[in-house]
Write a protein that binds this DNA or RNA. Structure first.
Lengths: 205, 205
DNA sequence: GCAAGCCTCCCCTTTTTCCATGATTTTGAG
DNA sequence: CTCAAAATCATGGAAAAAGGGGAGGCTTGC
């Protein structure tokens, strides 16, 4: 029985590229594609593929969040993350949210096919480059920050000073200071500049 | 006579997607593709396409720099920028370096064909979304910063304080302070946090 | 119940940044 | 060469952040 594939990616040429690459594979059935999160969900409501190739960057929603939602509603669908970025934070989050694989958009035909076959067999597939990234950065985890810390972080990035943040969040400046210190500590950095740089890299702001 | 097309993009599925989309166009001749800047230049040394689709992000060199080089050596080649990002800074730099068009990777088949036809006719083609971005942000230019300011900016982002930066660059701390102030002023921000956030958005760090 | 984690608040000292102003030397493009 | 921009250095004061404490109330899960 053919493996049913669906793809969600807002880049039409990527969709077309993968379709073209998989066309010659006999045991793969192309179900179609969606260009945004909403229409992807709408499709899944009607029918479910075996494997879903899911882009990290969608216009209406991040693929990372979407991955989580889909896995909650349709746990049997195997998801392979798809992105241009060999960025450890994305890969990590994607896997945490239930993805079975991750391939970069510079993948070859063979790599895509392998990825699909691997996840179907219950294995996890990571693009060779992606897995190298994972190994390299395995001790550079994204810090776990709390809701409040994230709010403070974002306001710091906006250029607000402690007093302004305090007024905006209806808390004391000393509290803001506490959150700030714990952010510095969790990110293991010495000052705000370094904090914001890392936060930007992790796509937290 | 058919229009000769060559594409430089490290994402194989994008190459394959475009190839598949252009296959049915009779007046387009597919010359092939390169996956990095070096092999692209090597190909151009042998033969020249009429239109070159050039990715912004290449493993060995930025498409923006490559665009400039190619236009200097082969001014007759028409270049169309290609990227996933609808980011005004990229588009602007690409056009400044001699590109004739810019399309996003979510472009449809029709859009690609239009882009190619437009630049062949001597016109400039911008993806509708890209041109909207250009108009929206025309007054939100990326600040022009000097070599030294950029160095200081990057060291600030690393978390270094003025004294450390001064030692690293063999200048006085007051000089670092001056550069720092001019950065704040050029970016029109109030503090370092905001500066670093913008710098990250503009891909300066 | 109770521990753990989160959010809240306060104090103190030191360090660093922010801002204004002015001036000299170096560099680079025309 | 020449002029403008860039890079260099300085003074000094106000504001903000960093770093170190300590502490109470609040959910949440075991």
């Amino acid at each position: 029985m053919a493996i049913k594939i669906f793809i969600a990616d807002d880049h039409y040429m990527v969709v077309e590229g993968i379709r073209s690459m998989l066309l010659q594979e006999k045991n793969i059935e192309w179900m179609g594609h969606a260009m945004n999160a909403a229409s992807c969900m709408a499709f899944l409501y009607q029918q479910q593929p075996d494997v879903l190739l899911l882009d990290i960057n969608m216009p209406d929603k991040s693929g990372i969040d979407l991955c989580k939602e889909i896995k909650e509603k349709y746990p049997e669908i195997l998801i392979i993350g798809l992105s241009s970025f060999n960025q450890q934070s994305y890969i990590q989050k994607m896997m945490q949210n239930g993805a079975s694989g991750y391939v970069l958009k510079n993948a070859s035909r063979e790599e895509i096919v392998s990825a699909i076959e691997s996840v179907i067999n219950g294995d996890t597939f990571l693009s060779s480059e992606a897995s190298v990234t994972m190994r390299e950065n395995k001790d550079a985890q994204i810090p776990v920050i709390t809701r409040r810390e994230k709010e403070v972080l974002q306001l710091i990035a906006e250029g607000l000073i402690n007093k302004e943040i305090a007024e905006k969040l209806f808390i004391s400046t000393t509290t803001v200071d506490t959150h700030r210190n714990s952010l510095l500590s969790k990110f293991d950095v010495k000052n705000t500049a370094n904090l914001i740089k890392l936060a930007a890299q992790y796509n937290l702001i």
